[in-house]
Design a protein around this nucleic acid. Sequence first.
RNA 1: GCGGAGUUAGUCUAGCCUGGUUAUGACGUCAGCUUCCCAAGCUGAAGGCCGCGGGUUCAAAUCUCGCACUCCGCACCA
Length: 485
Amino acid sequence: MNYDNVMKLALERGFYFPSCEVYADAQAGFWEYGPAGVGLKNKFVELWRRELVRRDNMLEIDGSQIMSQSVFEASGHLSSFADPIIKCKNCKSTFRADKLISDTTKIEIPESADLIDFDKAISENNIKCPSCQGEFESSRKFNMMFKVGIGPDGEPAYLRPETCQSIFVDFPRLYKTMRGKLPIGIAQIGKSFRNEISPRQSLLRLREFYQAEIEIFCNPDKLNEFEKFSEVQDVLIRIQVDDTPKQMTCKEAVENGTIPNRFVAYYLGILLEFYEKSGIDIIRSKFRKLSEKEKAFYAEVAFDFEVETTAGWLELVACNYRSDYDLASHAKKSKEKFEVMDGDVKVLPHVFEISMGIDRSLYSILEHSLRDDKENERIVLSLKPYMAPIHVGILSLVKKDGLKEKTDEIYQAIKSKFDVFLDHSGAIGRRYRRLDEIGTPFAITVDHQTLEDDTVTMRMRDSMKQNRIKISEIESYLLKETSYP
RNA sequence: GCGGAGUUAGUCUAGCCUGGUUAUGACGUCAGCUUCCCAAGCUGAAGGCCGCGGGUUCAAAUCUCGCACUCCGCACCA
């Protein structure tokens, strides 16, 4: 199924939809999750906690979305998370200054250069607007952070462009109070904000989006002393260094140098296992090693985890080895101590980051799970049972003869234990199909036989087959079938 | 932000060129009847300031201008 099919499902069944849509001044890049979307997101986050945070004994925090200016002076976002742009006085077209200069004159000016350098290059080389030959205004920086004013005087602060800065800033306290020991992972789920020039494709490029970030702090001298590596050494991953992705085990990837060390390989391995369990078709996934040019300004080595969808290859996770870039800059700016003891050695930890885009991940799960069952004239969302927004539908075959009351009884008994949807009205086949579309793996139906022997039918979403089970066994059955792996 | 194409009910859509009563149809939704395990049938109902704002006109979904949003390319990114 393609992007449009997923979009239609999302709008019709309450997965997600545009924010503020009743108003004409609603801005692009903001979307809401409806009930089904929240259900799926909650299941995804819980799986993330199980497969990454708990598996690795990480600490989870929940930091502020608004952070002070100093944080971003230290992190480099104030100067580097910005594009130099120039605007034509005549036709108002906007261009990337560094790009336009290198395209027309072959002069390479780094995008972080002073604005004066761009203006100088433009006047010296007599560069005109490519669309109308007009003159340019002075160049300026377009910073992708949202600036906010705090208090009556509007003290400058920013909506965080990535969740991880609070992890870095909080690191000294967390390490001390949580009895930290290297290597240690600190994780956070939350919103981040980027003032994208052109947000597009619903959940795929947002101005306000969810990230699940993990920062692992480590001793850079011990990147190959990593016992846990044996847990993932045989995990098969696909890695692309140049053009074509190659499949190999994590162990092979370290041995042939594709992945620099066991430490990084371990985390790529558990990340892949997580995504497989989330319902991503990992045959259509790869880790792509980024070139020097593509890497973010803070990264030393970087792998993107990408999956193939009808909207192209989507980058779901950025895995960056950030070295001591962040702790060193916060230490310098704040004059606080960020070094810790590893054994009897004092060390400024290095950081490996797993920065996951939740919204994109959810989209990919939806696209990889949605199928058109032409034979049975239905759309089925084949989510893993533990990922489904609704675990089970509870239906009365008909309302009369006491079936409704019996159905209500069963619903009351399990509604607080599972995500349950009760439905009495309409044709039974129609009700099954509605449940199929939001990925509900099971449907219990109360029929006349139920009144005689206290059994119900249990219908499976994917096969449409039904078993009869005792009412007394419903709870244990669902518990077993919908539990996380 | 640029170029191109669009925007009519939850979804898809007719009408627009050639302005004129109450805006078309399908699917979906809700209620009832019927059936009694897979989108059947019958009856009825709800749901639209035709993306937003201005202009032209006696009259605008329709002509016109501006803006916003969506989609496709460019550039940027989780």
